[in-house]
Design a protein around this nucleic acid. Structure first.
Lengths: 232, 232
DNA sequence: ACCTGAACACCGTTCAAGT
DNA sequence: ACCTGAACACCGTTCAAGT
């Protein structure tokens, strides 16, 4: 019975397995997460996990749900508007962005796991949050139609921006970690065929994730404002 | 030697393998695509594929590249602007959307495969198109800074919208195909706890992909228009 | 030159068996 | 009740061997 660096804790539980899986994905990536490895990190054989979760797929769903649940614990996010719908949406957007940045390896999973219903749109994929979203906007004067449109626009905005932000961040790390990606001289070689790109490669490499997100969010809010029928 | 429905054609080639893989993914999904199955569909053993591609990962990269290359063959898309940068972007956006809708099973791969450089943003992930994009906008009076910002905003817009459009479409099919997803009465049961959502579930189920895309695109163009320093 | 058989080192998952 | 050993049906990939 080894007593190494593994967390052998006080017996298994669904909760403990899911948390371990999340930590594992963030540390070593989704591809490395196998039932045997995860079991090992919990001081247990792979087969034991099946007492608590019916399959690896179900485990991944549980991880996604666990991550999304972090929104409820975020004190910056409101379940119901306090200072108007715009403030509500800004807080919600920042909360989701915090999740993406906290779990960069897992966020793509939040985005890509098939949702419960076809009209559920990642990353806002919990019914409670969809309900909160629609209630907030209709309560603020949006028609039902406008609230639904807003939900969709908001989802697209979050998904596009956060997926790319997380990918850019991950790519930097992957390159450092030595995936593939061309070496500096090979890259210069390639760029020689693309003069405009070459001139702008410095600008292209700059990280502007913060202003990008804020300005796009503000633009979205302006756009949604034009959908509201009634104002205060 | 069986002569079934398989395409036994005139010997293998990298091209033929990649096209088969693409067709396979669209017909049976990414998960089903194994080297053995793909080999089988080509009338060959799995090991033969390794003469043409070093790994399954490389095969997926090649499939993505092949799909993205469809943009060059699209007569609606311009490599260089003719009627202004807005027309150029509209055509480009529609071209990418056509790709997403033609290869709905493959498009998520276009979005998620690690790009060649960290500043390459899916789905516009070929250097030639990035070059064309930046050249078009700077040629139309955008500063380098503004052109780069536009590239990023355009990428986020396309990724968010098309990923969700393709997912919604796929979810409808997956439900028909009998994945999981709750039955109608189970769904009603769940919705009982979410009155607003319940009231709007009809609206939520409506397909508005076309207008959604067009309106968001128009909004993006308006926003980019404010970035242009010089006008004609 | 091009394809294959056999094998290696893995997977997820099942189930009878142990404690 | 909770965990494991052994096994099944797969994977991707390598390589010596066939034609």
């Amino acid at each position: 019975m080894s007593m190494g660096t593994v967390a052998e804790g006080p017996g298994l539980s669904r909760e403990r397995i899911v948390r371990s899986a999340l930590a594992f994905i963030e540390e070593r990536g989704l591809k490395e997460l196998t039932m045997r490895e995860l079991g090992g990190s919990l001081g247990v054989e792979a087969m034991s996990l099946y007492r608590y979760l019916p399959s690896r797929e179900a485990l991944l769903d549980a991880v996604v749900e666990h991550v999304v649940d972090d929104l409820y614990g975020d004190p910056g996010v409101l379940l119901t508007p306090r200072d108007g719908w715009q403030d509500f949406l800004v807080r919600l957007a920042h909360g989701v962005r915090r999740i993406a940045r906290t779990y960069p390896q897992t966020f793509p999973l939040v985005a890509s796991r098939p949702p419960a219903a076809p009209w559920v749109r990642p990353p806002l994929r919990s019914l409670r949050w969809i309900e909160a979203f629609l209630a907030a906007l209709t309560g603020a004067g949006f028609s039902d139609r406008a609230a639904v449109d807003a939900y969709r626009a908001f989802s697209s905005f979050l998904l596009g921006h956060l997926l790319l932000e997380v990918a850019a961040r991950g790519a930097d790390i992957a390159v450092a970690g030595g995936e593939q990606a061309l070496g500096p001289q090979a890259q210069a070689q390639v760029l020689a065929s693309y003069p405009v790109l070459q001139r702008m490669s410095g600008l292209m490499a700059q990280d502007r994730a913060d202003v990008e997100f804020e300005e796009s969010l503000e633009n979205l809010l302006d756009r949604l404002d034009r959908l509201v029928a009634v104002r205060a």
